[in-house]
């Protein structure tokens, strides 16, 4: 087991697994730093994974699939913002509703497109590649780029103001709603790319294939104190637990095969309980 972990191949595997978590966590950081509770990460991942796989299959291009996944993630974010901010619906409930909608909606669309409700037909895939996988690069660039943009760009400054003191934005004539919408759209597109990684690494979309990654990513956002780069790095820890769980399962160790895949869930729960958060939530999180 130890020999397996200390290899370059294992590191590459962890990096690859961490991509959807990290991109979802960056989305969670941007949306929440702008003041909107983001429990819809799971739905953004799932719709992103679905759109990426089906569009890649239809166009026979994994790259166009990635673009489709990003568009789907942004679309879910737009729907979330409309319900949460325009209608003023409960943000926690809207998030969970979108996740439930993604679960049923992707199954329905699978049935509609392919006459089968569980799997999409096999299309182009990035496979186990790391260096040649564009989504890995999107994740790396987004980790550094969003952290930089938070402190150095108009988008980032307005986003953080919208989450901390929206009234300050109003006094300088900027709409907090717009700042939140732009934050959510950028985040949604990134989470959609994360979803694309889930399906395009195998070339097939399967129902419920996001498997709670969005919720785990949000736990890492909270752990990292709503700092996007830290959250992305924390996600590498979850990915590591997931990879170890996978290897324990196939290595036939003394740990029962039913329990080994639970490692990332247990780790996330322990992190939440022991550390909670290493920072303060945005002042106006969840208030409109």
């Amino acid at each position: 087991m130890i020999e397996t972990i200390l290899t370059i191949a294992f590191l590459a595997e962890v990096l690859r697994i961490s991509v959807p978590y990290a991109l979802a966590a960056i989305c969670g950081s941007t949306t929440e730093r702008a003041g909107v509770i983001d429990l819809a990460l799971e739905g953004k991942l799932l719709f992103g994974a679905f759109a990426a796989a089906t569009i890649a299959h239809a166009t026979d291009s994994a790259y166009i699939g990635v673009a489709g996944g990003m568009a789907a993630g942004a679309a879910v974010a737009a729907l979330q913002i409309w319900f949460a901010l325009r209608l003023g619906a409960d943000q926690v409930i809207v998030g969970v509703a979108l996740n439930l909608l993604a679960l049923g909606g992707t199954r329905f669309l699978l049935q509609l497109f392919y006459g089968e409700g569980t799997n999409s037909p096999r299309g182009p895939a990035f496979g186990d590649a790391v260096a040649t996988n564009p989504i890995v690069w999107i994740a790396v660039i987004a980790t550094a780029g969003v952290a930089f943009a938070f402190v150095r760009t108009r988008w980032g400054l307005r986003l953080r103001a919208a989450g901390d003191r929206p009234e300050a934005l109003v006094t300088v004539g900027v709409s907090p709603f717009r700042a939140r919408l732009y934050a959510a759209l950028v985040g949604g597109a990134l989470a959609g790319a994360g979803g694309a990684q889930i399906s395009l690494s195998v070339g097939v979309f399967s129902a419920d294939m996001s498997g709670g990654r969005g919720y785990m990513a949000l736990a890492m956002v909270i752990l990292a104190g709503w700092r996007p780069a830290w959250a992305a790095i924390a996600c590498v820890g979850v990915a590591c637990a997931s990879a170890i769980g996978f290897h324990l399962q196939i290595a036939g160790s003394s740990i029962p095969p039913e329990l080994a895949p639970l490692l990332p869930y247990v780790l996330t729960l322990l992190v939440l309980v022991i550390f909670g958060s290493l920072g303060k939530p945005p002042r106006s999180l969840g208030k409109i």
Partner: peptide, 21 residues
């Protein structure tokens, strides 16, 4: 297809969240 009613269950939650406010 049975997926249709499965999807409606998510729609219901979103619709209630919107309608109540």
């Amino acid at each position: 297809p049975k997926e249709l009613t499965e999807m409606l269950q998510g729609v219901v939650v979103l619709a209630v969240a919107g309608a109540s406010v």
